[in-house]
Design a protein around this nucleic acid. Structure first.
Lengths: 250, 250
DNA sequence: CAGTGGTCTAGACCACGAC
DNA sequence: TCGTGGTCTAGACCACTGG
């Protein structure tokens, strides 16, 4: 095995300090210039080491006097499908994610915002509407323990949003939109998840407080009634701090 | 909106050439020095732009005279759970992934290799065995159209591997290991998927021909009989060229 | 052997925001 | 205000490999 490059060695050493717990969440990392001087290496080399950790999601990229910090990386488990509890969740009307977070003794919050967008190719495919068609959207920025955690946007065909005006009201729907839709005659009988993963876009990175290029999972959940798709939910989950679980019977 | 940094602008321009199809898969990108001279910018800036594209999985990082190339990024759809076809697939004994690939008019191949490893904490949790316990493993390197596509390692408790010697035989099991296990009294009644996503390790990157730091999805599928977990399959899917799908009834 | 990417150095100026 | 990261420059040497 050849000797590793300097910046990899440095990253390994810093990573060790973090994963051992010596530098806990929120710990301030040494400034680039200080680390460079101490080690008699170039600041650029320090930056490359920090970039590695940034891409691994271990640290933040604060661009101000506050400097870089160690991120909180406790893993959050999210049940995308749970054989035993599907009924309870759907009928209880509580957002399943809120339940998952609470069961892990952490506190969940969300900010809702609504709007109308024109369908791009993906959205048109998911909802089976023409490209360019207006579509209603409820956007959620969801937080855990006060910090941004994931983005969850749900899209509805426009005719449905007109029939169920609560969809375009930026308030919490206490009983849950799924239950509400079922009441009004749109009972979802099957759904499909499509998963894609890639680096976060700059926009997503900003909203979630991630470094650019951190991997995120896009979970697209399409809900169908007997007749047609009635909603598409796109959830952006940052990598390495989440585990998505599916339980299935054979 | 403030003006983007130089390297982002350059990356955007190069990305445009790729996504428009002007530079197809395999196309050789301009050498860093040439691009720097043409644009009157520093070679380091060009490198940062190429690094962005590398992390997005758009290009390769060839470190030799061959230079950087555009990667083939056609998306492969993989069904992790398909309501209608579960039975057909399980009984037919053909690897479900091979079926998926064939249905998309591409050709699949795999190299199998077997061994025994000691359980780390994760594996011990998945198979419900003590940490350090020996565990049998069948490793697959699976290819599409002749190029490495994903890594698929299946772990079995040692007592089971002794009872079913085919598990540790590095040959294709024509009827499928699941069907074989069912014949010998280990019928799987439920399974659970756990999904994690993060940058590829250097080892994975090398086996799959990826740039370092490309996002990969780790799909861990744990199969249970009525009594206990009997296998854990870890599949490494490179990002941006795969979409994983789950179909479920409500 | 020559072209390529990988690494490293030693500087510079800027924007931002905590103090 | 001044410490911080973000960006950019202009060089240098090395390892690898295709022709």
């Amino acid at each position: 095995m050849a000797e590793q490059p300097l910046y990899v060695q440095l990253a390994d050493e810093l990573r060790q300090n973090i994963s051992s717990g010596e530098w806990g969440p929120g710990h301030k990392l040494p400034p680039e210039r200080e680390l460079a001087e101490d080690r008699k290496i170039s600041r650029n080399t320090v930056i490359k080491a920090y970039d590695l950790l940034l891409h691994e999601g271990l640290i933040t990229s604060g661009n101000t006097r506050a400097g870089r910090r160690v991120r909180d990386r406790r893993t959050l488990y999210v049940y995308a499908s749970k054989t035993e509890q599907v009924d309870r969740r759907i009928t209880s009307g509580v957002d399943a994610w809120v339940t998952d977070v609470a069961e892990q003794n952490r506190s969940a919050g969300q900010v809702i915002d609504v709007g109308v967008v024109n369908a791009d190719e993906d959205l048109a495919d998911w909802l089976q509407v023409p490209v360019g068609e207006p579509v209603a959207v409820r956007r959620r920025l969801r937080s855990v323990d006060g910090l941004p955690d994931n983005l969850c946007d749900t899209y509805y065909p426009m005719d449905l949003a007109r029939e169920i005006p609560e969809i375009l009201n930026p308030a919490d729907v206490q009983q849950g939109v799924i239950a509400l839709m079922a009441e009004r005659g749109y009972r979802q009988v099957r759904y499909e998840d499509r998963l894609r993963w890639s680096p976060a876009t700059p926009d997503e990175a900003a909203k979630l407080g991630l470094g650019p290029g951190i991997a995120v999972l896009r979970q697209i959940r399409i809900g169908h009634t007997e007749e047609r798709p009635v909603k598409a939910t796109v959830t952006i989950w940052p990598g390495d701090t989440h585990e998505l679980r599916y339980e299935m019977s054979a």
